[in-house]
Design a protein around this nucleic acid. Structure first.
Lengths: 335, 335
DNA sequence: TTGTATGCGTTATCAT
DNA sequence: ATGATAACGCATACAA
């Protein structure tokens, strides 16, 4: 820890024999500086190993060139083997890379984490905030928006919050899935729903309800939380209630995977006895046994679009209050 | 974008009828302020919705209370379905949560990203930097360390760089794996090695070489890059060179998984004909067919320890130049 | 084209 | 216990 005193603009200016202003101009790429002087400044910068102090810079520019991606989840959950969050992160990272902005990832599962996020974002440490995976009616996005901080939600918020969002067409995807089951002759179609405090959970259940009703079929619902464990439990519950069910739509691939294992454990064949369709199209969906038919959601694109919208907003543009991306049924062997 | 002018200390001070200094004291929890005044200040803060400007604060305190986790990888790679990086992130997030510091995640796969990381970290935007997954001999960690910026590497660096690190006991784990194969009567033991520009790849191959030599057995090596695809290709290569091999140690679970599939595709049974052992113990290792025997590395703990070391370093403490965490052979059915 | 001077919002050092 | 006041390092309006 020598903590060598870092050279400042002032030091570079002295070394190059010019004023601070001129050094600043060169460092920031102004074209109005004579070439020989630019050269001298650049040499001084290199010799001293000068690096601008970003805090000082953003204090005066009122910009930080970094944006926050907030995941109001426990880290354990964010990086479970469902690739949803990672994909959103990737999408955001790609767009920010292109814009040469810095990604600040904030995990806010705990109340303390939530507070820290609030301090950090309201403290103007970032130029904008992208939220993902909101549970219930988190007040933070609305609060930030009211403070004039650019905010976009990836995944619509529950409740009636005036924050722009991007989301996927949950209902359309589920409708296609259920219709496929019906077309395949299934008549006792159950669903393993997602958590009902998240839009993704609510919407996919809505889609299921609408679709089975439209087909004149009965509803059979068990609720999980998108994880494998909850999927297995829900599947057992459904079998208890209707041992003769012949189709299952699970609101996540992880739950679908667990459901297939549970079905097999009870001696049922997939898809011969029971057809199973998932939602997400995670990477391993093609490797399950049998390969999983599922609804693909463009989750990477969700992260990208959300980020693009946010960057536009932060740049002062007016953006659409909502963007909805299409989903697509991917046929494999499980249904 | 109303961008309401954010209230400053000055505004709060006027409102509360005190000086800026006093407001600052209250905001920062100084005890030397009379209770009634504290009360008045707090009310003013609440009424105005005052939030400290972090840039201004860190400009004077020279601290940012945030640390960077740098992953010199493409986002696509970081969030592949191997859970190594996510676990490191989780570990770091947990420790920082406890320390009430902010995690800044930086993906630096591209040269541009690498530059951005350098600007950001040398720009004093963070109090310390934790590197993970270094390829080849990245000069950045050493450079930052020389600038007096606290740096720790999660995973030892290739080359002889004087940067403190934490890593797992690769050789010990591999030795246990190969010994288990030998004890099981295997005599033609191959390895699918990891990328040779990373310590994890190099060390695991070293471990394999030492172990088979110690057992008086021949070497059989193919090199992959930890991914499934490379594992399948390497397995085919190995079978071409020795169709009668009876044991495989793969340097990652993903490669082991692909190897098992490839073996089955060629009509071989696992473990009857060929025993397979992986490395990592990712979550899905227990769900492969057959469940994968593998070397567990405490990857979450690696992230945690690295972060703890970094925090100590940033606090001015002297830390051990290296910390090595134990690995453990987990017996399942594939070997 | 270059330099001077000012302010960004804090914290910290002094007095009082 | 509280209040002036001086940094902190930079960008920029204005002057030259």
């Amino acid at each position: 820890m020598t903590t060598a005193q870092r050279p400042t603009l002032e030091a570079v200016a002295r070394r190059a024999g010019v004023s601070r202003a001129t050094v600043s101009r060169v460092v920031n790429g102004s074209t109005t500086v004579a070439e020989p002087i630019q050269e001298a400044v650049r040499r001084a910068v290199a010799e001293l190993g000068y690096v601008p102090n970003l805090a000082a810079r953003s204090l005066v520019t009122q910009r930080t060139d970094s944006i926050a991606l907030v995941l109001p989840e426990e880290a354990t959950r964010v990086f479970s083997d469902d690739q949803v969050f990672p994909s959103i992160i990737r999408g955001a990272a790609q767009e920010l890379e292109a814009a040469d902005k810095q990604l600040v990832l904030m995990l806010a599962g705990s109340p303390a984490g939530h507070d820290r996020v609030e301090r950090y974002t309201t403290g103007r440490h970032v130029d904008g905030v992208l939220f993902a995976s909101l549970h219930g009616a988190d007040p933070l996005p609305g609060r930030l928006a009211r403070l004039g901080i650019p905010v976009v939600c990836s995944g619509r918020m529950l409740g009636d919050v005036p924050v722009p969002y991007v989301d996927v067409d949950h209902v359309g995807g589920v409708t296609a899935a259920v219709r496929h089951l019906v077309d395949g002759g299934r008549r006792r179609i159950a669903t393993i729903a997602g958590p009902q405090d998240m839009v993704a959970g609510v919407e996919r259940l809505n889609g299921y309800r609408q679709a089975v009703q439209a087909a004149g079929l009965p509803e059979l619902v068990a609720v999980g939380d998108f994880t494998r464990e909850s999927g297995a439990a829900a599947m057992r519950q459904l079998l208890d209630r209707d041992p003769d069910l012949d189709g299952v739509f699970a609101a996540s691939d992880l739950m679908a995977h667990a459901a297939m294992r549970t079905l097999r454990a009870t001696g049922r064949r997939v898809p011969d006895d029971v057809a199973v369709i998932g939602f997400d199209d995670i990477e391993t969906a093609a490797y399950t046994d049998p390969p999983l038919t599922t609804v693909r959601q463009p989750i990477l694109e969700l992260g990208r679009r959300g980020t693009r919208q946010l960057l536009r907003l932060a740049a002062g543009e007016t953006i659409e209050p909502s963007v909805v991306l299409p989903t697509e049924l991917v046929l494999r062997d499980s249904a």
